[in-house]
Amino acid sequence: MKKHLCFYVFVFIVISCKKKESPLTFKNTIYNATTIETCNMGMCPELDIERLTALGDAKLADSINKAVERVLVSNLVINPDEIPKIKTLDEAIANFISSHRNYHDEFPETNAGYEFSSKSAISLNGSELLSIVFDTYSFWGGAHGYGSTTYLNIDKQTGKSLNTENLIDNEPAFLKLAEQKFRSQKGISENESINSTGYFFENDQFILPANIGFTENEMTLIYNPYEVASYAEGQIIIKIPLNEVTPFLKLSL
Rank of each mutant, 00 (worst) to 15 (best):
Glu190Ile: 09
Ala112Gln: 15
Pro45Gly: 00
Leu47Asn: 08
Phe182Ser: 06
Gly234Ala: 05
Leu221Lys: 15
Asn95Arg: 10
Ile30Cys: 04
Glu50Tyr: 09
Ile49Met: 14
Lys186Val: 11
Asp62Arg: 08
Ser230Asn: 15
Ile237Gly: 14
Asn163Tyr: 07
Trp140Ser: 13
Asn211His: 12
Gln157Val: 05
Gly198Val: 03
Met219Gln: 07
Lys250Met: 02
Tyr103Val: 05
Leu249His: 01
Ala210Pro: 10
Val73Asp: 08
Leu76Val: 00
Lys176Trp: 04
Gln185Pro: 09
Val9Trp: 05
Gln157Arg: 08
Gly159Cys: 03
Val71Trp: 03
Ser74Met: 09
Arg51Glu: 12
Ile122His: 01
Lys156Ala: 09
Leu221Val: 10
Ser148Lys: 11
Ile13Val: 07
Thr25Pro: 00
Thr38Ser: 12
Leu55Gly: 02
Met41Leu: 14
Asn217Cys: 13
Pro172Gln: 01
Glu179Asp: 14
Thr215Pro: 03
Lys239Thr: 13
Ile132Ala: 01
Val14Trp: 08
Arg101Trp: 01
Glu82Tyr: 09
Ile212His: 06
Gly159Tyr: 02
Glu21Ile: 15
Ala54Tyr: 01
Ser99Lys: 14
Pro45Glu: 06
Val11Met: 08
Ser118Gly: 05
Pro241Leu: 08
Ile168Leu: 15
Tyr103Gln: 04
Ser161Glu: 13
Asp204Pro: 12
Val133Lys: 15
Val68His: 00
Tyr199Glu: 04
Tyr199Asn: 06
Ala178Tyr: 02
Phe134Leu: 11
Val228Gln: 06
Lys239Ala: 12
Glu192Val: 06
Val9Phe: 06
Ile15Arg: 06
Leu167Ile: 14
Asp169Glu: 15
Cys44Pro: 03
Phe174Asn: 07
Asp81Thr: 07
Ile154Tyr: 00
Ile236Val: 12
Gln157Leu: 03
Gly147His: 11
Arg183Leu: 02
Ile83Cys: 03
Ser184Asp: 14
Lys119Phe: 10
Tyr226Glu: 13
Glu82Ser: 14
Pro84His: 06
Thr164Glu: 05
Val245Asp: 11
